[in-house]
Design a protein around this nucleic acid. Structure first.
Lengths: 212, 212
DNA sequence: TTGATATTAGACCGCTCGTCTATTAAAAAC
DNA sequence: GTTTTTAATAGACGAGCGGTCTAATATCAA
């Protein structure tokens, strides 16, 4: 008695009920999950496809190559957090701008907790792999950091204008410091599988903002 | 006319002049270089061997597996920087303990500059790859951080006893903060290929130590 | 009805990776 | 001085990878 492994017919499948919602989107989601956990090099296309139950042949219908796939992931991830940042930093229900930044941080922390501290930051992860990545990635990654940093800097400046931060603070520099340290904290939190590094960094960051 | 590619005879080679100084050591050095640049997964054994001019077969004479090779690299790297730390933190020619820490930092910065900001921290690099690494690595990496952190904490406590730091500073916590942020800075410095992130972090770190 | 297009299955190729086996020299044992 | 053991190497090997291709099948527009 042979076990029939559900022999999927080849060719475009008939749409049954759900029109197999956006395979491309699913691939991208699975890609983010894998890249944040293991990085670009360690992530295999096959593996991404398997996790979504999509056959290999489909991949190159949606993406030109693994490199193109990764590039899109970087852009999407950058845009996703830019949006998240903006949502919090423009939250009128919080009068203090620093509290808005804190809200974003809490959101990000919750995100790490939700995945049991197994996933890091896609941008930071790929940053580490620089030496093994397509050359074009570096600029993309730096651009994302520059964008995120600019948004935080703008927030700090508004806080400064609001009297929440002393006038002599260099907001641009502090924003740079924030992302430098935050990425380090995410890295450690992932390695230790717990939120402590995030908490330590955040506490120290805001303490440093106050007195100088 | 065939080009004879210097057909090395198989088997143990006769010792000629130099006894082929410590192949094992060379492999480890090349390993550090590659892992700090590209990480563990992206580093191929073949590539390490080629860079040293050693044939593939030799590798498994010296190391049980790639995993064992990596484990040894982690330990060596951890010990190397522990030693470097101790050397600076016990430097009697510098009266202020904070200056000793600064000396270590300057040393590490010079190291990055020497490699043109292409190499990061081996421990931090592997930390990012956690999801794709042998499970046993995580403990090793955490142990290294714990060791480094303890040394910095001890230094800060001596500085505190010396009146260089206010009494209410939590040295243990600050030491944790230091390594969290430093790793983030190394990551960014590598990505941007310049020392700026290191400088920004160090400045902010010491500023935070002073006033609170 | 016909053709063009979207989406899939899975074979295939070239390459690299980590491991293993066979081979040879040196060193130790007898 | 012969034999045995160990050190060190060369290269074969199988598995898996990323990427490509052909063939198959459905949908949609003309």
């Amino acid at each position: 008695m042979e076990i029939q492994p559900l022999p999927r017919r080849r060719g475009r499948p008939p749409r049954q009920g759900e029109p197999r919602q956006d395979t491309r989107e699913q691939l991208l989601r699975a890609g983010v999950a894998s890249l944040t956990e293991k990085g670009f090099v360690a992530t295999g296309i096959d593996e991404v496809l398997r996790s979504v139950g999509v056959p290999k042949g489909s991949f190159y219908h949606y993406f030109a190559s693994k490199e193109a796939f990764g590039a899109e992931l970087i852009d999407r991830y950058g845009a996703y957090f830019a949006k998240k940042l903006e949502r919090h930093l423009a939250d009128e229900t919080l009068p203090a701008h620093l509290d808005r930044l804190r809200a974003f941080i809490a959101d990000a922390q919750a995100g790490m907790a939700r995945h049991d501290y197994r996933r890091g930051c896609l941008i930071g992860n790929l940053g580490q792999e620089t030496g093994a990545l397509p050359a074009a990635y570096s600029n993309r990654l730096n651009a994302v950091f520059a964008d995120w940093q600019a948004r935080v800097a703008a927030c700090l400046k508004r806080a400064q204008a609001n009297g929440e931060i002393a006038a002599q603070v260099d907001c641009e520099r502090q924003a740079a410091f924030f992302w430098i340290g935050w990425e380090g904290a995410v890295l450690r939190a992932k390695l230790e599988r717990r939120p402590r590094p995030l908490e330590i960094f955040v506490e120290a960051f805001f303490a440093g903002l106050q007195q100088r």
